[in-house]
Design a protein around this nucleic acid. Structure first.
Lengths: 140, 140
DNA sequence: TATTGTTATACTCTATAACTATA
DNA sequence: TATAGTTATAGAGTATAACAATA
C-alpha cells in the first residue's frame, strides 16, 4: 500500500470522525467515547478502569470521567474486586443493554443512510474493511 | 450492510481517529485538521475560507483559526478576490508543497507500520475501502 | 516501592453569538 | 438586506501532574 493511499486513508478517517461526532450532538447525551466504552463492556464483560483505559487508548483520568458520566446515567455499576482493594469491576446494567439495543441503529443513522446509497460493490468493500479497520484500531 | 456492522465501523473510525491524533503530538505543530486543509488546497487549488469550511465540514470561525495558524507557518498566503472585496483566495505556498512532500510519509507512519503488518488480503480490503471511505467523508 | 484510581488543572479543537465590511 | 469573514467567548473531550489508598 503506497504512502499516498495511507495518507488518503488517514485524511478520510479524520474527516469521517469529525462528521460522526456531530451526529451525537442532539442525542441522548452520550458521546462517541462513552458509547464505545459501554459497547465494549457489553461485549467483553466487566473490566477495571485501567483495563478500559488501555483498551480505548485513553489516560486513566479521562476514563474516570467517562465512567462517572455513564454511572450517572445508570448504565454502569461498580463491584469490588475480590482480592485487590484498589481495583473494581465496571459492570453493564440492564438499562445499558436496553439502551444499546434501542439506540445502536439511531446512532449509526448518518452512516447507515450514506452507506445505503453506495453501490453494491462499494458496500462489499466497506463491509470487508470494517473488520480490518477494527483490528487496526485495537492493535498495540 | 446490517446495523451491527455499521455500528462496528463507526466505533472503529472513532477509535482510529483518537489514536491517529496522538501521532501528531510531537510533530511539527500541525494538527490533523490543518494538514487536511493544506492537503486539500494542494490538491484542489486556491479556495476561499468558506469553501474550505464547507469542504472540511467545519464552521467558518474554526476555519479562520486553522488558516491563521497555517499562515503563521508560511504555508498559506492570501490573494484578493478579483470581483468581491469580502472574499479572498487561500493559496498554497511552495514551502507548503515541500512540507507536504517531506512529511506525508512521517505523518502516516503509525498507520503505515500497522498496515504493513496486515495480510495481503487485508491490505487489499483496506486499499479498496480507502476510496469509498473518502467518498463517504465528502458526501453532503 | 509500585500500582490503581481520583482530583485538580490546563490544553486542543470546534462551536455559537455578535460584529464588520462588502455586495 | 444578505453574505463573507472575523472576534470574542464557551464548551466538549482529553491530557498531565499531584495525590490517596492499597499491594
Amino acid at each position: 500500500m503506497d504512502p499516498q493511499t495511507v495518507a488518503t486513508l488517514r485524511a478520510a478517517i479524520v474527516l469521517l470522525a469529525r462528521r460522526l461526532r456531530h451526529q451525537f450532538a442532539g442525542d441522548e447525551a452520550l458521546n462517541a467515547t462513552e458509547m464505545a466504552v459501554l459497547g465494549r463492556i457489553a461485549r467483553c464483560g466487566p473490566m477495571t478502569p485501567s483495563q478500559l483505559a488501555r483498551a480505548e487508548h485513553m489516560r486513566p483520568p479521562s476514563m474516570t470521567k467517562v465512567i462517572d458520566n455513564l454511572k450517572k446515567h445508570g448504565f454502569l455499576r461498580c463491584e469490588p474486586h475480590p482480592t485487590d482493594g484498589r481495583r473494581y469491576w465496571v459492570v453493564c446494567t440492564e438499562a445499558a443493554e436496553a439502551f444499546i439495543a434501542a439506540t445502536t441503529q439511531a446512532r449509526s443513522q448518518w452512516l447507515t443512510i450514506r452507506v445505503a446509497d453506495l453501490s453494491e460493490a462499494d458496500r462489499r468493500d466497506i463491509c470487508s474493511a470494517t473488520m480490518v479497520l477494527t483490528r487496526l484500531a485495537e492493535l498495540p
